[in-house]
C-alpha cells in the first residue's frame, strides 16, 4: 500500500505481510496505473498547446489554410520565420529587449545584493519595512502605479525611452531578486564572517572576499531570473514605448495580431517561438536552482 501512496511520500517501507496481502497488491497496482493515467493527462494538457505552437511555426501557408489541420507539419519550412522578420522589425525588437532586460537585471541584482545582506544580517525597522514592501508591492494593481509613473517619467522626458523602461524594470524585478537573495545570504554561515573579522578583515573586505564568492551561484540564478522577468514583461512596455523602433519583443508580437485578429498564423507562431527561446534557455539552466531558491526564501519563518 505504501506504493499507492498519493498522500505525499516518495517511498515508505513495505507493510508487514498479512492475510490481505494479495488484495493489497492488486489495489497497489491499480493505484499505480491511476497515477500514471493522471500524470499522462497532465502531460497532455501542458504539452499540447506548446506542440501546436511549434508545429504551426513550421507549416507552409497552404497547410495552414487546410480545413483538416494535422498535428505535425507535412513539409516543414522556415518560410514563416523569414516572413516574420520581413513583416516586423523583429531583430531590432530582440536587441531592444536584450538591452533593456540585460541592463536592468544587472543593475537590479547589483543593488539587491547589499540590500538583501542588510535585510538578513541587520535586524532593524528598515529591514522589516523592506520585507513589508516586497509583499505590498505584489498587491497593488499596476494601473495604480503606471499612471503616476507615466507622469513622473514624462516630466523627466523618459517616456518612450528604453532608459525609462529599464529603470522601471529595475524596480519591477527588485522584490523577487531581494526575496531570492535573502535566502542565499541566510545560507552563508555567520561564523565565516566572524572568522574573517578576527583575522583582521575590514567589513568591506569581508563582504567582498568572503560573502560575495559564496553568493555567486545564487547571484547568477537571481540574475537570470530577473532577466527572464524583464524580457517577458508586457504591460509597462505597452504603456511606456510608443515608437516601433524602440518597442520590445512582447510589444512587437502584438502587432502581428492586427485588427482582424490572427490573419497570418504562420509568422505569428514563428515570431512567438523566437521570443520564447531566450527565456526558455535561461530557465533550463536555472530550473533546479530556482526551485531551491524559492524554498530557502520561503522557509525563513
Amino acid at each position: 500500500m505504501s506504493a499507492t501512496d498519493a498522500a505525499g511520500v516518495t517511498a515508505a517501507p513495505a507493510p508487514p505481510a498479512s492475510a490481505g496481502a494479495g488484495r493489497r497488491k492488486a489495489r497497489r497496482r491499480a493505484g499505480r496505473a491511476g497515477q500514471y493515467l493522471a500524470l499522462l493527462c497532465y502531460v497532455v494538457f501542458l504539452a499540447f498547446p506548446l506542440l501546436w505552437l511549434v508545429s504551426t511555426a513550421f507549416k507552409s501557408p497552404q497547410e495552414l489554410g487546410s480545413v483538416h489541420p494535422t498535428w505535425l507539419p507535412k513539409h516543414p519550412t522556415l518560410d514563416n520565420f523569414r516572413t516574420a522578420f520581413d513583416e516586423q522589425p523583429l531583430l531590432h525588437a530582440a536587441l531592444n529587449s536584450l538591452m533593456v532586460a540585460g541592463i536592468s537585471a544587472v543593475v537590479s541584482v547589483a543593488i539587491a545584493v547589499p540590500a538583501a545582506y542588510v535585510m538578513v544580517r541587520f535586524r532593524s525597522l528598515v529591514s522589516r519595512a523592506g520585507t513589508g514592501w516586497i509583499l505590498v508591492s505584489q498587491m497593488f494593481p499596476l494601473v495604480l502605479i503606471i499612471i503616476p509613473l507615466f507622469m513622473v517619467l514624462k516630466n523627466l522626458h523618459l517616456v518612450d525611452s528604453r532608459l525609462g523602461l529599464g529603470l522601471v524594470y529595475v524596480v519591477w524585478t527588485l522584490p523577487f531578486a531581494l526575496w531570492m537573495l535573502q535566502g542565499y545570504v541566510k545560507a552563508v554561515p555567520v561564523s565565516l564572517e566572524e572568522a574573517a573579522a578576527i583575522d583582521g578583515c575590514s567589513r568591506a573586505r569581508t563582504l567582498r572576499s568572503v560573502v560575495l564568492p559564496l553568493l555567486t551561484p545564487g547571484l547568477v540564478a537571481t540574475l537570470m531570473f530577473s532577466f527572464v522577468t524583464a524580457w517577458n514583461e508586457f504591460f509597462f512596455g505597452l504603456v511606456l514605448l510608443k515608437s516601433p523602433e524602440k518597442q520590445t519583443m512582447s510589444v512587437i508580437l502584438t502587432h502581428f495580431l492586427g485588427a482582424e485578429g490572427a490573419a497570418d498564423l504562420g509568422p505569428l507562431a514563428a515570431a512567438s517561438v523566437l521570443a520564447t527561446l531566450p527565456s526558455l534557455l535561461f530557465f533550463a539552466l536555472l530550473q533546479r536552482r530556482l526551485v531551491g531558491g524559492m524554498m530557502t526564501g520561503a522557509v525563513k519563518g
Binding site: 501546436w52 519583443m249 512582447s250 502581428f256 521570443a275 520564447t276
Partner: peptide, 23 residues
Amino acid sequence: ARTLALVPWAMPEVVVGIMWRLV
C-alpha cells in the same frame, strides 16, 4: 511532467496568449 510544468513560467505572457489563440 516536471519540465513541462515549468515551461509556462518561462514563456512571455503575450506568447501564451498567442499560442492559445492558435489553439
